[in-house]
């Protein structure tokens, strides 16, 4: 079936189709369409929708729903995601599967409701306290909002870890066709021998992140890090566009990746050998893949709606700072095609 819908609603439907049956959220623009959509869809599929009293409460309701074995999700936009960091750290520590959606807006502070990408550091470098990682997926279209959210539930359960959909207000609110098979099957059930549902016919269980015995917390951290490095090995995804033979490469994700693609076409039509690298997973980051592309002589322009955050990871990948340039706009400013094209030409 083909639908004309917004990114936020496609995200909600992707969650429902994946088998999400618990959603808690607190209103904030530009993700309100998602909360409203879940309020309507959850009862239709026998799931739970709660408009919580705060983002703190929402993410902890999701913690509880995950403890009880439900596929659960919460969503917000930048200021609300700051409030969720406590819960995200607890979810990662307790090794619970959950999906968190951040439809980013301009910041810092209350900022504005225009699209932004300034929460990259928060999403991929930690955000909450302690040594943990979030799997971070970066959709760039309404179709990808559906598909990446669907996939997020599968990753969350496979690794028992929180997964974030990191997108922005433009992708969240734009309308585009969405196509999927109406008979699509939910993410296959995985055994959850840790769920708390009453100790019937089995020993009682507890879920905790307070580990006080000598060496216990260090051992838990080592276990978590092993899991994270296996995710780094197996789950990196990126899109390459006309990278072969290119000597100028735009690196951008989400909305900027989409605009970057148009820039490549424009530059190619002028005889400039441009290409695009679009990370689909921001963590794990495609360091190795970008390093390989950088083994030639290519120069890189990283484009973001921020003061320059992902550019730090690209520099780590390229390992030759002279070949990495940055162009970004902040506070809701969206770099335009002509601005980007001009900077690629200057590389």
């Amino acid at each position: 079936m083909k639908y004309l819908t917004t990114g936020n609603e496609a995200c909600g439907e992707g969650a429902i189709r994946a088998g999400c049956r618990f959603y808690a959220g607190y209103p904030i623009t530009p993700q309100n369409e998602l909360t409203a959509y879940m309020s309507k869809r959850m009862p239709e599929v026998g799931g739970v929708f709660i408009q919580s009293e705060s983002e703190l409460s929402a993410v902890n309701m999701v913690f509880g729903a995950a403890v009880a074995g439900a596929r659960s999700m919460t969503s917000s936009s930048s200021p609300g995601i700051s409030l969720k960091q406590e819960g995200i750290s607890y979810i990662a520590a307790a090794e619970l599967p959950a999906v968190i959606v951040n439809v980013m807006r301009g910041g810092p502070g209350l900022g504005n409701i225009a699209p932004g990408q300034a929460d990259y550091f928060q999403a991929v470098k930690g955000g909450g306290h302690g040594d943990y990682r979030l799997i971070v997926l970066a959709p760039a279209s309404v179709q990808e909002m559906f598909e990446f959210t669907f996939k997020a539930f599968s990753l969350a359960e496979k690794y028992r870890t929180p997964v974030m959909i990191l997108t922005d207000g433009m992708i969240g609110q734009m309308m585009e066709p969405l196509e999927f098979d109406d008979a699509i099957k939910p993410v296959p059930a995985v055994p959850k021998p840790w769920v708390l549902d009453g100790a019937k016919g089995r020993p009682s269980r507890s879920i905790k992140s307070l580990l006080l015995k000598d060496g216990e917390l260090e051992a838990h951290n080592i276990h978590l890090q092993k899991k994270f490095s296996s995710i780094e090995k197996k789950e990196v995804e990126l899109e390459l566009y006309k990278v072969k033979g290119a000597d100028r490469i735009i690196v951008a994700y989400g909305l900027m990746g989409r605009i970057g693609r148009e820039c490549v076409d424009t530059l190619r039509s002028k005889g400039i050998k441009a290409g695009l690298v679009r990370p689909l997973t921001l963590w794990p980051f495609p360091y190795k893949e970008i390093r390989k592309i950088a083994s030639g002589k290519a120069k890189f322009l990283v484009v973001e709606m921020s003061a320059g955050q992902m550019v730090e990871d690209v520099r780590l990948a390229v390992q030759d700072d002279k070949r990495v340039r940055f162009y970004g706009r902040m506070g809701g400013g969206v770099p335009e095609e002509k601005e980007i094209v001009a900077r690629v030409k200057q590389l």
Binding site: F22, L56, N60, F63, V67, S204, R205, I207
Partner: peptide, 25 residues
């Protein structure tokens, strides 16, 4: 001490966690 299923909650978020569990079960 308790021999039944028990989870921790972040400081003060206890009723939110209980809400999530109860609505699912």
């Amino acid at each position: 001490y308790w021999d039944f299923d028990t989870t921790e909650a972040a400081h003060g978020r206890t009723p939110a966690v209980a809400t999530g569990i109860k609505r699912v079960l």
